[in-house]
Amino acid sequence: MQIVIINSNATELYVIHKILYQIKDIIYYYMSASENVRYIKIQKIGEGAYGIIYKAQDVQTEEIVALKKFKLSDNEGVPSCALREISILNQLNHPNIIKLISQIIINKKLHLVMNYYDMDLTEYLKFNHEEFHLKNIIYKILLAVEFIHNRKIIHRDLQPNNILITNNEPVLIDFGLSRVLSPNMTPGVTQLWYRAPELLSNCNTYDYAIDMWSLGCIIAEIALNKPLFMGSSEIHQLLLIKNIINGNEWFLHNSQFAKLNNLFIDLINVCISLEFLEIIIS
């Protein structure tokens, strides 16, 4: 279809716009009927090892959704992270955990359809917020993590980028790395800054404690407005942890924790418990 505009003035443009607007639904209808396209990609949001995330619009309900596209390799079929993510997300029904609307196949590629939220915790923390909202967010995150732990699932990739915020309510996303607790697991999970010491020392029989460590780092980040440990490599990260946390009363010697409430410090301290580290060192 080609539209050539000659001598365009305001009224003509208005008429053309009106016509285009009227036939928009018809075009969408034909596209969805001929190619089985229900979602139209608007823009790319993120990219990872597993695939690409798009912002898209549902043609039928005009709802904005997030599409997560998985790379399907010719040799190995459906990737295992997709298998785990879909089967786990199907089980989880909680207001603070992302809902999987459906899974579809477009052009022989697997797409997950999920709700779209435009802000994650990192961006949210760039603005000033009331203490009440921040406390609410921490509480809701803890509830969501308890919910998945009660189902014997470890998230294994908790970080501010994987917590989306909508109307001051957090939503947990990205279960691509999560799995059911088993005696033998790979230690190469979680982003480096939020990685627990047992993972850094290459232990493969860990448990929920790694999620709690990430949560402690996230809570401290909410309180301090900057990440707690910013290591550049695994060794550097371990050194940072060792320097900051030294003994049970570590927060007393650290000036940046002085302004915080005692209860808050207790919460962080419980999450970043050093029991495991002592076992490893001894």
């Binding site: 040799n75 190995e76 459906v78 295992s80 298998l83 089967s87 033998n184 790979t186 493969n204």
Partner: peptide
Amino acid sequence: KYEEVYSVPHV
């Protein structure tokens, strides 16, 4: 694919 860590058999 769902359960194993390293030793997923190839097709």
